[in-house]
């Protein structure tokens, strides 16, 4: 049933956008974190999406002919650019010259991405509800 797999596709989109939002919120929360378990300041993270087939119990052959897959998080990338150095001699994490390494996180950039993730999530919810309506219509044929 093609319509039920459309719901699975929408759900995969919701899951991916939620994962992206989680990473972006982590960036915002750690915008001023100077200590991490790996040492050094926090580094900005971002997710990479990839197209992936959705799990389907029935008629997987038919689905593969039509194409059109869901989305999945391929991986989380960590920003490798140099940390921002601020002159704060009194700070406990300051180096010999009095500079503290701060994360290169731009809150405005993350906020914009977060809004994009929220909109993407909403679009997937709209897709699911449209497909749900179609399925309900098909069921109503029996009445």
């Amino acid at each position: 049933m093609s319509l039920f797999s459309a719901i699975a596709v929408g759900a995969s989109g919701m899951a991916a956008q939620r994962a992206r939002a989680e990473v972006l919120v982590e960036n915002l929360a750690n915008a001023d974190t100077t200590r991490t378990p790996e040492g050094g300041p926090y580094r900005r993270k971002d997710v990479i999406f990839e197209t992936s087939p959705v799990a389907e119990e029935f008629s997987s052959i038919f689905a593969s002919q039509v194409g059109g897959g869901g989305v999945a998080v391929a991986g989380v990338i960590t920003d490798t650019s140099d940390p921002e150095r601020r002159y704060m001699p009194g700070h406990p994490d300051a180096d010999a010259d009095g500079y503290v390494a701060f994360p290169r996180v731009n809150p405005a950039e993350d906020m914009v991405d977060l809004m994009g993730a929220a909109r993407g999530y909403e679009a997937n919810v709209a897709a699911i509800s449209a497909v749900k309506d179609m399925i309900q219509r098909s069921i109503d044929l029996l009445r």
Partner: peptide, 26 residues
């Protein structure tokens, strides 16, 4: 109706992949 549901699946797939690098609308 069969074609419409197939098309709807592709639309859902396109929306899900709105941020996937290199994805082309199907």
């Amino acid at each position: 109706m069969d074609l419409l549901s197939t098309r709807q699946k592709l639309v859902a797939s396109n929306i899900a992949n709105v941020d996937t690098p290199g994805y082309l609308t199907q």
